[in-house]
Design a protein around this nucleic acid. Structure first.
Length: 203
DNA sequence: AGTGGGATAGCCT
DNA sequence: GGCTATCCCACTG
């Protein structure tokens, strides 16, 4: 029985851009009363804190919502966007509000649960976007403020880091944020078929 | 490309 | 209490 091994605290204490890449291939695991669902992280986006116009914490904006971004690396930052919930990994030192958005995962365990939570969708459509994967895995707003080293929401060892290639490019959904829009702070597992939709090649 | 959806939080009265 | 923005999604055509 090969069981889930949560990444240690030290894993989360590497620099944000490095952590955003290190998270690729890790398993995102959510336990609920219905059972366990998990998927391999295949796409992430870094948000670089006070200097990043696209980040919620731009200009050190500190509110009830962003408060956790100022907390310990490895904390869970959930956020609602209309009907959708997005999940982020807090990074950097306490007081330095940086975070990484998990944009897509590849289903692993609990696929029948995911299917029930994403009725009528093809397998690919279960988790190939930040709002979709939270629904498929059962991630809720009450996961806010927990830590990824402890149940019910954990990040665990997954694929070997040398078993895939990492690509990077501009982030998504932040068209109106000035020069920050072009920073290549989105990372993904090259060629994976569960990535979120790629937009605007615009060469 | 445009747009409706309908969940928060923040910021103003 | 009302307005507005938000690190999206799915549906139109």
């Amino acid at each position: 029985m090969n069981h889930y091994v949560p990444m240690p605290q030290s894993f989360y204490e590497q620099p944000t851009l490095q952590l955003a890449q290190a998270l690729l291939g890790c398993l995102l695991v959510k336990e609920t009363e219905e059972g366990v669902a998990s998927g391999y992280i295949v796409e992430t986006e870094a948000y670089m804190g006070p200097a990043d116009r696209a980040a919620h914490s731009f200009g050190n904006r500190r509110t009830k919502r962003t408060e956790i971004m100022f907390g310990k690396a490895g904390s869970v930052y959930t956020y609602t966007m209309h009907t959708h919930i997005l999940v982020n990994v807090v990074s950097s030192d306490v007081g330095s509000p940086e975070a990484i958005l998990i944009r897509a995962v590849e289903p692993f365990e609990g696929t029948s649960l995911m299917e029930n939570r994403r009725p009528g969708r093809s397998r690919k459509e279960w988790t190939n976007g930040p709002g979709k994967l939270t629904k498929a895995l059962g991630i809720q707003m009450n996961d806010y403020g927990h830590h990824f080293t402890a149940s019910p929401l954990t990040i665990c060892e997954g694929w070997e880091q040398d078993s895939f290639h990492i690509s990077s490019g501009p982030r998504i959904g932040i068209e109106n944020t000035g020069e920050a829009r072009d920073y290549p702070w989105r990372y993904w597992v090259e060629g994976n078929s569960y990535l979120s939709k790629m937009r605007s090649p615009t060469t």
